[in-house]
Design a protein around this nucleic acid. Structure first.
Lengths: 154, 154
DNA sequence: ACGAATATGATGCCAAGGCTACACTTTCTT
DNA sequence: AAGAAAGTGTAGCCTTGGCATCATATTCGT
């Protein structure tokens, strides 16, 4: 996480708000997106676990993500800190309202990305694999374009 | 960088080689990709600086990327460590043969991704912005599909 | 119901990639 | 040519997200 530069040397203190169309701006944005990716993945997975099995235990989460439980717990801590989740010891993790909304958005986006890749002719396996990384970088504007595109080819 | 797990607890020591089609496998792959993204961006930029201006100084690189020069130098150190670049103090950074190849691949991929986004109907600015993050997650297989797709709509 | 197995949570370690600050070169300007 | 400006490199700090390990808590099977 960039932690607000405030560097005096050679950066004109961009007010952070506008997505300047400069190369540096694009890279900054990409880095910002990246820092959200983890939260998004966890939120989506927790929602999925609740939707299917019923519980989202740290160990389940860790296994599904391919990390150790310690890593999962650390991420869950961050989710709690961000107000996206709560957890009762030995009772699993629960998404807050905000967390649920994030998860829903992420899931919809994931499906759309996979669909678009498939429509373009990407083999199913590759589509699934690449979507996992791509989805986090798909902006709302691009997402809308994806939806329109699918309506066209459907 | 994952640093080879060797965890004994609940992971069956996957030989690292096969891209297993499991969810955990997909996430691992996405993380692996992520760790390459930085090197790719730097290599591409260095090649671009050489192609246009002529020199790739740490400060130029830092400015273009929107980071401080200290950060750029750290990344350059990693590039050197990975055998992708060399540097002569106060004389700029140079890509090795391998670095050049990486840069070329990355650039071609970037252009293709932007083109595909445009073809799908994504506005230019969004296409440029999103491609910056997306490109790193586009596998060779998907890239080939992209190329075929463009031939079709061209 | 109790002991083994499993899950949980807390620590501590590591590397990457941000940052600031400071020292030292090089280059530019006058 | 000398001082100012700009570039370069080093060091130290922070956060994130991996990891292993250990001590507990819970759950399960007999």
């Amino acid at each position: 996480m960039p932690r607000r530069p405030a560097d005096a040397q050679q950066r004109q203190a961009a007010p952070d708000l506008p997505a300047e169309p400069t190369q540096a701006g694009r890279f900054e944005q990409a880095r910002r997106v990246q820092s959200m990716a983890l939260l998004e993945d966890y939120a989506e997975l927790i929602a999925d676990l609740h939707a299917t099995g019923g519980e989202a235990r740290p160990t389940d989460i860790a296994r599904r993500l391919g990390v150790t439980h310690a890593t999962a717990i650390k991420a869950i801590t961050r989710l709690k800190r961000e107000g996206l989740a709560t957890a009762r010891p030995y009772r699993g993790v629960f998404l807050t309202e905000e967390g649920e909304q994030l998860a829903a958005r992420v899931k919809a986006r994931h499906l759309l990305v996979v669909e678009v890749l498939r429509a373009i002719g990407v083999p199913p396996d590759a589509a699934e694999q690449d979507a996992e990384g791509i989805e986090h970088h798909v902006s709302d504007i691009t997402l809308q374009a994806f939806a329109r595109f699918l309506k066209g080819v459907k």
